[in-house]
């Protein structure tokens, strides 16, 4: 546990040094400013989608970038010969990027001042979605060697992840969207700013917890198998 806290501290410092925090702050500031000047009444759906697609999905992008930076610097193999367990390494990334998404998301919602607001649901939405995207980011980045290759596989994740938006904006309706975890994310986000049926919230919470659990396992396995053990210079 002590090691996990140490790792979180250093990851927080590193994302600051990599300029990730600055970029997140600029994006957040832009959204906050717009929402301060725009009356968002009736636009709750848009606000929650923006919080979902931005701070949260950036977690996916930022995690991947960070792991690629480290791959470039070959620090993974050094981390691997310290007592730090692999699952702490993964959890630390999830914690740091979830915190970043929380700060950013809460700042945006506060500036949007929605008429109906469930803070707990928003926090749950951000935490469960951001961590899921961090885990998926680590799985994805384990398959690639550099950023160019990463850009190629990005649509494989973001494409399906965005499909439930069709349902969310009432363009297409099908029960199949409920199989995609981002459907659950969207439900939680919109439940935080608009009244939602309870069965939907329960479905979303349970479904996201299950997805987080397996994505986490998969991330640990991917990291061990494809990032540490074959991290050679040749």
């Amino acid at each position: 546990m002590k090691l996990l806290i140490e790792n979180v501290k250093w990851d927080a410092y590193l994302i600051f040094k990599y300029g990730i925090v600055t970029i997140a702050a600029i994006i957040t500031a832009l959204y906050c400013m717009s929402f301060i000047f725009i009356d968002t009444t009736g636009l709750e759906k848009v606000v929650s989608v923006l919080i979902f697609t931005d701070p949260v999905m950036y977690g996916f992008l930022f995690t991947s970038v960070m792991v690629l930076f480290e791959k470039d610097a070959h620090t993974h193999e050094v981390i691997a010969v310290t007592p730090l367990p692999v699952n702490y390494y993964i959890l630390s990334k999830a914690i740091v990027f979830t915190l970043l998404a929380l700060v950013s998301g809460l700042a945006i919602i506060v500036s949007a001042q929605p008429a109906y607001f469930q803070p707990l649901l928003l926090i749950l939405a951000i935490v469960l979605s951001a961590s899921l995207f961090v885990f998926v980011g680590i799985v994805g980045v384990s398959f690639v060697q550099n950023f160019n290759q990463f850009i190629l596989i990005m649509p494989l994740v973001l494409g399906p992840a965005c499909l439930p938006l069709l349902h969310y904006f009432d363009l297409v309706n099908s029960w199949m969207f409920y199989l995609i975890p981002t459907q659950a994310c969207l439900i939680l986000f919109s439940a935080s700013v608009s009244i939602t049926e309870i069965w939907q919230i329960i479905y979303a919470l349970i479904y996201l917890i299950i997805w987080n659990f397996y994505a986490y396992k998969w991330a640990v396995k991917s990291y061990k198998k494809r990032i540490i053990k074959t991290d050679t210079y040749e």
Binding site: L14, K17, Y18, F69, A73, H74, T75, E77, V78, Y233
Partner: peptide
């Protein structure tokens, strides 16, 4: 290690 591996920004 055989080749350098450090956090470049630190």
């Amino acid at each position: 290690f055989e080749l350098p591996n450090h956090y470049a920004k630190l």
